[in-house]
Design a protein around this nucleic acid. Structure first.
Lengths: 246, 246
DNA sequence: ATCGTGGTGTGACAAAAGTCATTCTGCCGA
DNA sequence: TCGGCAGAATGACTTTTGTCACACCACGAT
């Protein structure tokens, strides 16, 4: 049985950590300390194991989620078992602002990639916050805007670019977050080719083949899941060669 | 030379028509008459010929657009000349709310389909409106939400469905706006197969072939640009058969 | 050491998408 | 009525994508 004092202590801890996290969420950027604590007190932490599904496309939406630690992927899945990742969200990201606002169901599913801790904020708490603090709505609009741009980007790639191009483009995006070494840019690939495939909207085998080919062409090097791009410029050039083209 | 009185008369006419149009725009739904006239007085009408480009992807965004008459298409185009339509907007739709808000450039291009009249509202006028009237931001959020859902839908189709499925799905969507006749549902196809192709993200030829095939299978009938679907249920069934599948 | 398991690499194939060239058709203007 | 022309249809072909089957690790548990 839990000692009462311990329990209270836990709640306080949770709240202060929540505060810490919420502070760094873009949509809460310019809330006062008081307002933040209002939220933090109401934020319910939830933990997920790697791979665990957080919510599924089509479910009604109960509230806003904020990532504290870990990483989640938002994706669509086809009846045939294929998946298309729409976005990956790390610590400090808010999720599902949209259905919270328009009242509709989740347009896609979300699952934890790593072990993940989220905060859950009930729809109504968030709503009341927005009414008092109209700036929040504006921030949400910015975040949603960025999301919309990303989606348009995905559509563009899917409808104009080959798997090869999409893969290259994706590697370059990954590389943008890697670190420079004398030998080139070094970055980490996703845990499996399957995952990489669903991020660019294709199947495992094509990723495998195309990676081999890029390696054979000397455009990339791989050691396990570590990617080395000796010359990002060459890779980039490879992209423009096909002029995103189909 | 224009007589002064005529000029004033014109301005008044424009304003009152603008008022009429703005009233029916979702994001302005619950503005007071005063607020609407504030906007209407500042709304600049602009006319476009069929096919004329209204703005191009990547341009900085100057303001919000509202469709009064006609129809516009929002689309991405590839260097190879292919196009992917993201959405079609008719009278009463607002366009480019997003870049107005997040300050970024237009994520896609827009062109008039028919002869079109738009109202242009300067960014700053719209901004000041939003500050006074926070509800507008919430409405915008809903509109943007719907848009985001549509984009997710496009991504889903592009990455999971064949051209045939996409075409069928699109025909059914068109049919939803057609009218019932004893012989089935009757609706109007876009002006050219090329256009239809870019709406579902493929090329002219595939549209042509697939339409022929659907006709041969007795699932649709065509007379010029008029589409007749004898049994929407059969067509729908055809869709589910492949389970949106690849 | 051996087995199982999950992810990988690959060859052989099948299906779908896209390209090219050519022909057909309906329609407008001379 | 005759060209001429744009869009549409169509056959032949290529490329890309996806599927299936199977062999091959690497690694942890037994």
């Amino acid at each position: 049985m839990l000692p009462t004092t311990g329990c209270i202590y836990n709640v306080r801890m949770t709240t202060s950590k929540a505060l810490e996290t919420l502070q760094h969420v873009p949509i809460f950027a310019d809330l006062s300390a008081t307002e933040l604590s209002f939220l933090a007190e109401r934020a319910v932490p939830r933990d997920y194991a790697p791979g665990e599904v957080i919510f599924t496309e089509g479910e009604p939406c109960a509230g806003l989620l904020v990532v504290e630690t870990g990483k989640v992927r938002i994706y669509k899945s086809s009846p045939n078992g294929r998946e298309q990742v729409l976005s990956l969200e790390g610590p400090g990201s808010s999720i599902a602002e949209l259905p919270v606002f328009d009242g509709g169901n989740y347009p896609a599913s979300t699952a934890a990639v790593d072990a993940t801790r989220l905060y859950f904020i009930r729809k109504q708490d968030f709503h009341s916050l927005c009414l008092v603090h109209p700036n929040v709505a504006l921030k949400v609009l910015k975040v949603v805007g960025a999301r919309l741009r990303r989606l348009v980007g995905i559509i563009e790639e899917l409808s104009f670019a080959t798997v090869r191009s999409r893969l290259i483009a994706h590697l370059l995006r990954i590389a943008a977050e890697g670190k420079k070494t004398p030998a080139g840019i070094e970055a980490q690939l996703p845990a499996s080719n399957q995952e990489l495939a669903s991020q660019i909207g294709t199947v495992r085998e094509l990723v495998s083949r195309n990676l081999s080919r890029l390696q054979a062409e000397g455009l990339i090097q791989m050691e396990g899941k570590t990617l080395l791009i000796p010359s990002p410029r060459k890779l980039q050039a490879e992209l423009e060669e096909n002029e995103a083209g189909r």
